[in-house]
Design a protein around this nucleic acid. Structure first.
Lengths: 249, 249
DNA sequence: AGATATTTGTTCGTATGTATT
DNA sequence: TAATACATACGAACAAATATC
């Protein structure tokens, strides 16, 4: 019905009694169907007069959560994520350099104040790592390429949420912040100058360095973690034809 | 409940009456909840004795469909897709070269027989283009990196399904098949030889050439299409802060 | 092949919650 | 404050699918 009527975000579906009539099924069935659409983020329900089911632009966070579920049993590793980031973030940087305005640059600058200084506590250090990843989420939001923006934002969100990563962030690592901050400062300059090639190569170096530090840390953390909780080593691995690595998400 | 019990794919949830008891809600509510999980691909329902709700590994096709919905109103262009493919497919090729076995190579070879010859009809040409994209889907399935595999598979699926692309495929373009087939033949050799650098550079050239041909074709097709159906020009554009291109999916 | 038991799927009537006017 | 228009929730009965004997 949505497709055939070419319904656009903001429009309202018929009310439940009308849907019951239109499709010749009962209320419960209609409600299950509406729940499916709501789960996919395609509609939002509102109660009360004037309420009903409204077509919506799927929120990026919803789409991210749905696809994150897919990777839940896949045992993603830091390397898997950085393979992608190394390929995509430099392209994102280059693309942004071609069109980013002063307002966007100001937003990005603001995002960096959270970690422009050494952390006083381990808790602050963790907050800074999250903030650093949110800087990358902001970058992604400014992309003119929805695919590139979504994917880069998704990867940053993964790094915030994945269990392995959260364990990594419990270990102090001053270099990670220092070098990250330095790269991002240089990146903003290149973006301000509208210089795609420089932006790309800065981001490339940033990703290479971050990957090196994260995978090194991953090894340490996994060793400690597995020693402390050795039964985890025998945790059931994903079924299906041959994946080879560990690091359950 | 799934998370707290750390339930794994294959396990069964309690039956509806038990869930009703466990959560103290009615059958309709339980069913809406189950529908949500089923929509996300997290469970599958089966009727009959021994039936019920089973935890499942989310099928890749399900996850792709969910995230494809997100892009439905975003008006993706051929360029958007090829920005991603140019960045990712070469990395995929290089990664595959490090571990692909003879069985996998045989599967890929089989996938190519569909388009190892010039098409006799326009219908066959269309089938060949789909088959060529399915070759890339196969490649993606063999990746050891779930993120890279999923994303490359998703991009190929987009090119199969997107309205702009389907229109493009209605125009004859012998070069697309010839050059694609030639690149893929070279690629298989590099994969067989276990040579990541060669595989990467072949795929890079393949993507560059494909992008060029597709965007050129896109311009022609859009011109014809918009002339034939000029009211489409005024189709409502995606809401929200400034996207700049056309080519509604 | 057919009967039966088990489990999900659907319906209907009713009651409740919530936002607008 | 009250009336109205919606979604949301409940419960009992019935229908359909499927495995097992």
């Amino acid at each position: 019905m949505i497709r055939d009527h070419a319904m656009q975000p903001g429009e309202r579906l018929p009310q439940e009694p009308d849907l019951i009539g239109a499709f010749g099924v009962s209320k419960g069935t209609i409600r299950e169907a509406l729940k499916m659409l709501e789960t996919q983020g395609l509609i939002q329900m509102r109660t009360g007069p004037g309420g009903g089911a409204f077509i919506t632009d799927i929120p990026a966070a919803r789409a991210r959560a749905l696809v994150a579920n897919y990777f839940f049993f896949k045992g993603l590793s830091i390397s898997d994520i950085y393979d992608m980031r190394q390929a995509l973030e430099p392209e994102l940087a280059a693309e942004l350099a071609t069109h980013l305005g002063d307002d966007a640059l100001a937003v990005l600058n603001d995002a960096m104040v959270e970690y422009d200084h050494p952390p006083a506590t381990i808790e602050e250090e963790q907050r800074q790592r999250i903030a650093e990843l949110e800087f990358h989420e902001r970058l992604a939001e400014f992309s003119n390429n929805p695919l590139l923006g979504f994917t880069c934002g998704f990867l940053a969100a993964l790094l915030k949420d994945l269990a392995v990563c959260r364990r990594i962030y419990r270990y102090p690592n001053p270099q990670l912040r220092e070098r990250g901050f330095s790269y991002q400062t240089q990146l903003l300059e290149a973006l301000r100058a509208g210089d795609p090639e420089t932006a790309r190569s800065i981001m490339k170096a940033h990703m290479r360095a971050a990957r090196r530090m994260m995978t090194a840390q991953e090894a340490v953390v996994n060793r400690d973690f597995l020693q402390l909780a050795p039964e985890r080593k025998a945790a059931p691995r994903p079924a299906g034809p041959g994946r080879r690595r560990g690091h359950r998400g």
